[in-house]
Computed example of a mutant assay.
Amino acid sequence: MSSDPVGLHRVITPSGVLPQAAEKLDARPEIWPDEVRIAVERLNLDAASYRQLAEAYGGDGTAIRRAVLDIVEARGKMQNPVTGSGGMLVGVVDEVGPESPLGVAPGDRVATLVSLTLTPLRITDGLENWDGRGKQVPAHGHAILFARSIVAKLPDDLEPELSLAVMDVCGAPALTARVVRQYVDKGIKPVVSVIGGAGKSGSLSLAAARHAGAARTIGIVPVRHESERLAAAALADTVALADARDPVALAAAVEQAGGPADITVVCVDVPGCEHGAVLSTATGGTVIFFSMATSFSAAALGAEGLAADVTMLVGNGYVPGHAEYAIELLRTEAGVRELFESRLAED
């Protein structure tokens, strides 16, 4: 069997689907000519997936670790069967096929910029160095990248854990900046509201909106200590407290903070925020969903039920140059870096 640039040759079941939709992948270490094998150092589970596992097992780290191992063993990849999401990883390039177009060499320390849901993965250490109580997972094993995969070399001036945390969400600020610039190019300086503004993707999105020319940025957080943290970071013009699952309260908070928003960016890892995002967005505005907890049927039907004329975008995690852009925001925005480092310390 010949290899395929998107990894069809690694799909075991069911046949005919892409690796992300597969129930099981072939994670054997031998590579095809256009593949790359990575020696895994650390996984970064996406927020929605880790939250679901933590809630399902009552925060029992041993049970969470066992669940992750069972998923990887059964599926040949890390894809939470409940959320459908996975995360990403960092590691060292182990072997490069002679036909690989990815531009990496053995010994390069890299971050994969494609989801673990489509990356063949095998864990060999039983995750013995992970207590199950954080999204970043020290691990040994290997992963396989295809010809159409995306990978970035880790910068020398940042700790690998920090680089991984940034690259895990680097699609959010890049797309936010692109949408803001589209408004600015039309002569509109938009009001941008970021739901979950004190989080990783949220803080980067606030910084990106400001850099791209937003007239006003609003950071939405659910609790007081998050409000204080975001205010100290000085990334939003206004910080507002609201439960994003309460549409009326969220819309009122955004209105009081200077809204409604022309652009709303959803960066929270809990379900049920779709209607609030739509309701707090101005007629003709744009909602960008950057959460794996989003129900897109709820978003579409909710907008219809509200007679809301808004454009809804699904952040797919890839915009050309997104990793470099996010890393540059981390380097140049002290507030972003402070938030990221504090989150890592908590994890």
Rank of each mutant, 00 (worst) to 15 (best):
M1N: 08
D4S: 15
P5W: 07
L8V: 03
H9V: 00
V11C: 04
G16A: 10
V17D: 03
L18F: 10
I31H: 06
N44R: 15
Y50T: 06
R51Y: 02
Q52F: 09
G61E: 02
R66T: 14
A74W: 04
R75K: 09
G76H: 02
K77T: 11
M78I: 06
M78N: 04
V92W: 04
D94L: 10
P101S: 14
R109L: 09
A111D: 02
L116G: 00
T117Q: 08
T117G: 12
L118E: 07
T119M: 11
T124K: 05
G126S: 09
E128C: 05
W130A: 04
V137W: 02
A139R: 01
I144G: 03
F146Q: 12
A152W: 00
K153M: 11
D156K: 11
E159C: 06
P160C: 04
P160V: 06
M167E: 01
C170Y: 00
P173W: 03
P173Q: 10
L175K: 00
T176S: 07
R181C: 05
K186Y: 03
V191C: 09
G197Q: 06
K200C: 11
L204P: 00
A208M: 05
H211Y: 07
R216T: 07
R216M: 11
R216G: 00
T217M: 14
I218N: 14
I220M: 14
V221H: 01
P222Q: 12
A234L: 13
A234N: 13
D237A: 13
A249V: 05
T281S: 08
T281N: 08
T283C: 07
F290M: 09
S295C: 12
F296I: 12
A298K: 13
A299H: 07
L301T: 08
L301M: 13
E304M: 12
T311I: 03
L313T: 04
V314Q: 06
R331Y: 06
R337F: 09
F340S: 09
E341Y: 05
D347V: 01
